[in-house]
């Protein structure tokens, strides 16, 4: 697995870029910008479903989510750059594994939303609250993305992870 990821990184030129003097911090800046777009667009929509900004139409505000998805794509691209450049620093790191788990939960939560309550929420009047399950989805989404940020910080901070990792 490590060899495969390393080969991909070297073959595509990612490794060379990431090991240039400003490669890593540039990718980190784009990674955090993507996260801000995600929080600012998906997170703000989640907050709207939780009742903040009453009066703003759900359907209109949902248009922000497209920019959040763009932010997610930035995160995914730069995340792959980090992972393939130093796979051994990530694959065995419990903070990275936990981060992936929360990303998975956030993804499943998103599918739950679009498969069940999306149309109902978009059709809800701006002055009305959304249905309770949609609020739970919004809260779960916010918590997951906060956990992703925390785990992202943990990846580089606690090494070894005995301070916090109960399953290590």
């Amino acid at each position: 697995m490590i060899e495969l990821l390393s080969s991909f990184s070297k073959f595509t030129g990612i490794y060379t870029f990431m090991n240039s003097p400003w490669g890593w911090p540039t990718a980190e800046s784009i990674h955090f910008l993507g996260l801000c777009l995600l929080i600012g667009c998906v997170g703000v929509f989640d907050l709207r479903m939780l009742g903040v900004g009453r009066g703003i139409g759900y359907l209109q505000m949902h248009k922000l989510v497209k920019i959040g998805v763009f932010g997610y794509c930035l995160n995914l691209t730069t995340g792959i750059m980090f992972l393939t450049t130093a796979p051994d620093q990530y694959l065995f790191n419990p903070a990275f594994q936990t981060k992936l788990l929360f990303m998975l939960v956030a993804g499943l939560n998103m599918f739950w939303f679009y498969a069940s309550y999306s149309d109902q929420v978009k059709a809800t009047e701006a002055a009305t609250s959304v249905v309770e399950p949609a609020k739970i989805i919004a809260m779960l989404s916010l918590l997951c993305w906060m956990a992703v940020i925390i785990c992202g910080r943990l990846i580089t901070y606690f090494r070894p992870p005995y301070h916090w990792c109960w399953f290590c």
């Binding site: 801000c36 600012g40 667009c41 703000v44 940020i149 925390i150 910080r153």
Partner: peptide, 18 residues
Amino acid sequence: SLTLHSLAMALVVGINLA
């Protein structure tokens, strides 16, 4: 402190960008 800084920064920048 580091995590709080990141979370708060993401929220502030995110809201301003939106």
